[in-house]
Amino acid sequence: MNLRYSTLAIASALCLGLSTQAHAAGGGLLATGGVTTVEGSAGGGIVPWAVMSGYAEEGEWGGTVSLSRASVDDFNLSVTAASFSFDNRFEFSVARQSFDLSTIGGELNQNVIGAKYRLAGDLIFDRLPQISLGVQYKQNNRFGLPEAVGAQRDSDWDAYIAVSRAWLAGPFDRTWLANATVRATRANQTGLLGFGGDESDSYELVAEAAVGVFLHRSLAVGLEYRQKPDNLSFAKEDDWMTAFIAWFPTKSVSVTGAFVDLGDIAGLTSQQGYYLSLQAAF
């Protein structure tokens, strides 16, 4: 399957759908669908949350299209993603990542197909927090370099469970959000450097977390943390951290910016920079 074209086709179809309707289709509250992660699932920027993309409540459907870019000292990551969600229960996503090795030269890329299922609870109203189970299937399309540095396979599955909760009037009478995610993965740098390695080729559980506060209904700031495996002996892999600000001027559009600290990547140390993401949602 050629995912680049299917992603573009879905994105175009959704854009067309968005432009022909004046109002958001789904009945969810502002920002409750989160934004689009670099892997296409709804969440923050680097951590998938339990939220469903877009604004689909029971019996409704929704979705998103997004363009994102992270630029750190020696690398640039571009992501095109689209998602579809239904019944406040299911989410399906596709993402195309291009990782530009500006210093080393060349480009890595991979496709990610994601599915998420809300098991129980609600972000705001239920007694239980929102709990979702997700999978991501990743296909690395430039496996030459990853294989040369010890990666064991060019495609693999990640699975995760995420718990998200918002408090309408938390500290300082502001609305707060917290998310915790546990992921089973063998991915090196999310899969851009393949899966498994010469040091370890078994699944590892990693922890990911996010906390944010809404300064106003349409403006949130927060932090994310993503633990990562370290499977390849040629270079140490670090955890990722971001400090983000997300603005939801309407339900249809959101803009996310972040400072990102991706640590050491492929032997190049202390990769820091910015992240910018635009999302259209309905």
């Binding site: 300082f172 906390v211 932090l223 943390y225 971001t242 400090a243 400072f259 600290d261």
Partner: peptide, 23 residues
């Protein structure tokens, strides 16, 4: 920009604010 320091500061802020949120 030291994000680790930012994380620590935010954690302290978060914990303190729980005890100071009465209106």
């Amino acid at each position: 920009m030291n994000i680790k320091a930012l994380f620590s500061a935010a954690s302290v802020f978060f914990l303190l604010s729980f005890s100071a949120s009465t209106s």
